[in-house]
Design a protein around this nucleic acid. Structure first.
Lengths: 149, 149
DNA sequence: AAAGATTGACCCGTCAATCTTG
DNA sequence: CAAGATTGACGGGTCAATCTTT
């Protein structure tokens, strides 16, 4: 029996089940306690990690989990809420920046510890540190670029 | 610096990224090669693992990754396609069975190796067996019931 | 023509409300 | 009224087409 195949299928199944179970509760808790949906948080996180708190849409699309088209819409929502502002690229008129406003940064910084705490509660509570490392390192390897052939 | 917190956040982030990256390619490949969308496959898998190839909707809802309401719709689609049939529960008129037809079982059995192969290609290719175990065991622990308080 | 970004149409999935039977 | 299941309305997400600028 090809046990490696079964192991791979079980591991993938675990990803599906954990994602399906954890994501909704995480999102609900984050909305309740901070008013930020998960998609907003994702964008704010990448912006606040960027120098000057601004990125082009393409850069956001590469860094965040969302697709580029979803990013456009989330940035619209964030702009309506006053948490980011859209600015033009100085030299390339096609490109558009999203940049964090002061309020956006404040909201993010207030939300960050709540988010981290929610991850602990809903995802990591029952795991040993070694188990967490195993999950992180294994999943990182899935997306690591293949060694050149 | 609370490195355990960062570790947990990184591990959860890895779950999000892997899910977002792998699910679409897996679904596309499965559709192309077998004509079955992932949701169909999920239901067929649980049915074919059940004795007599039949389960009530509630049982399906507990076992599969999808929600109960989604299950209703997927079973409708599967019934239209002739892969399952809806039958009544002999003693409880509220309950409804979904049961695998011969064609449904054949389609599933043809699809299963393709699915397993796709998991290998899109998810497990770069992972050592130990890494796969780390992912599976760690994620299983997330959903394990808490020890009674 | 190509790159950056946005928009429209559409699918997947859930929640809340509803229907039916016990 | 409670349990099983289905349906309607809606949000979140992506793809393909489009618009603008280079």
């Amino acid at each position: 029996m090809p046990s490696r195949r079964k192991l791979a299928a079980d591991a993938w199944g675990a990803v599906l089940r954990v994602h399906a179970a954890v994501l909704p509760s995480l999102d609900r808790e984050l909305r309740m306690k901070t008013g930020l949906p998960l998609g907003w948080y994702d964008v704010l996180l990448e912006l606040s990690a960027a120098p000057d708190g601004q990125l082009t849409m393409s850069e956001l699309g590469q860094r965040a989990v969302l697709s580029r088209s979803r990013i456009s819409r989330v940035v619209d929502e964030l702009a309506d809420a006053g948490l980011v502002s859209r600015t033009r690229h100085p030299t390339d008129g096609r490109s558009a920046f999203a940049s964090l406003t002061a309020e956006g940064r404040a909201r993010f910084e207030a939300a960050a510890p709540v988010y981290v705490e929610a991850i602990q509660t809903h995802f990591a509570a029952e795991l040993t540190t070694d188990q967490l490392r195993g999950v992180r390192d294994g999943l990182d390897a899935v997306l690591a670029p293949r060694p050149a052939p």
